[in-house]
Amino acid sequence: MSPSTFNIFLKQLSRNAHPVLNPKIASSAYVPINLSETNPQLNTFNVASSSDWEKFMQSHLKSHQAKVAYGGYLEQRNIYKRSGYFNPANHSMERNIHLGIDFWLDAGENIYAPLQGTIHSFKNNTNYGDYGPTIILEHTIENQVFFTLYGHLSLASIKDIKQGDVVQRGEAFATLGTAEVNGDYAPHLHFQIIRDIAKYEGDYPGVCSKKNLDKFKSNCPDPNVLLNLY
Rank of each mutant, 00 (worst) to 15 (best):
T5Y: 04
L149E: 10
Q12C: 00
N43D: 13
G151C: 08
C220L: 03
N224D: 15
K24E: 15
A17T: 04
N7S: 10
D165E: 13
R77H: 12
I97G: 07
N90K: 14
Y70V: 14
G100L: 11
R169M: 12
A69G: 05
V225Y: 04
H188N: 09
S36D: 09
I135H: 13
N7Q: 15
F147A: 09
H91Y: 03
G202A: 05
F216K: 03
S2A: 09
F6I: 02
A107D: 07
L74F: 04
K217F: 03
T140V: 15
S14R: 03
R95V: 01
C208Q: 06
N22W: 00
I33A: 06
D196K: 12
L13N: 06
I158Q: 10
Q116V: 03
L13T: 06
F45N: 06
S157N: 05
G129M: 06
Y73D: 09
D196N: 15
F86C: 09
G164D: 10
P3M: 09
N16A: 02
W53Q: 12
D196F: 07
K215A: 07
F45R: 06
I197T: 05
Q41S: 11
T44S: 15
I194N: 08
Q144L: 05
R95G: 03
P19C: 04
Q168W: 02
N7H: 05
V225F: 06
N39Y: 01
E94L: 07
V20A: 00
K11S: 09
R15P: 00
S157G: 12
D203M: 01
P3N: 05
K55R: 10
A48F: 04
A26W: 00
F6T: 08
T38R: 10
E171W: 01
